[in-house]
């Protein structure tokens, strides 16, 4: 119930931002339209529940930290890719590496994929469910083990508390 109301309120906020309106009536209208959409689409918009997700307040509290970490990664990655494009760093060891899925849920895999792909320098390619790996293309794959450790560290520090 709480999840449904929060989702409808989120869609209402989206509606208000699209209209660029501060009128509370628009917020209510957006929430009602969002709620109707959620009811009409049933469970298709709701991801599967996961175990060990922590409390909702803890997840909300850590969400800005996760966003900040992703934005920092985007800035660092953009700088690195720009230097490589401008011939100031070599592009001699790009490649596709395997990263273990580990404890990630389906939603966790999706968020990991979004976060790594948004940051220049890494692109999510495929999920190998048989071997339990994510396949990522890195513009610098010269040390795959170090890259795997870095991605795991990011997951453990920032993502696991919000999207396990």
């Amino acid at each position: 119930m709480i999840r449904g109301v929060a989702a409808a309120a989120g869609l209402g906020l989206l509606y208000v931002l699209t209209l660029a309106s501060t009128d509370p009536v628009d917020l209510v209208m957006g929430t009602v339209v969002g709620g109707a959409l959620l009811l009409a689409l049933g469970n298709r918009l709701r991801p599967a529940r996961t175990s060990d997700v922590g409390t909702i307040t803890s997840r909300i509290a850590w969400f800005p930290v996760l966003i900040g970490a992703i934005l920092f990664d985007v800035l660092v990655g953009t700088w690195d890719v720009a230097l490589r494009v401008l011939h100031l760093r070599p592009v001699d060891r790009p490649g596709i590496i395997r990263v273990p899925i580990g404890a990630r849920s389906e939603r966790g895999i999706a968020v990991s994929a979004l976060a790594t792909t948004l940051s220049p320098g890494s692109v999510f390619v495929e999920v190998d469910h048989e071997r339990g790996d994510l396949l990522l293309h890195l513009i610098d794959a010269s040390d795959p083990d170090a890259s795997r450790a870095r991605l795991q560290r990011f997951y453990d520090r920032y993502q696991r508390r919000v999207f396990p």
Binding site: V91, D92, R93, P94, G95, I96, I97, R98, A113, T117, V123, F124, V125, E126, D128, L135, H137, L138, A141, S142, P144
Partner: peptide
């Protein structure tokens, strides 16, 4: 980006850097 990368990967698009790493 993921859609393009996965399409390239599934159709066997080759990496064109001689020392490219391939763990697949």
């Amino acid at each position: 980006s993921h859609a393009v990368a996965r399409a390239a990967y599934r159709r066997g698009e080759r990496m064109r850097t001689p020392n490219a790493v391939n763990e697949t």
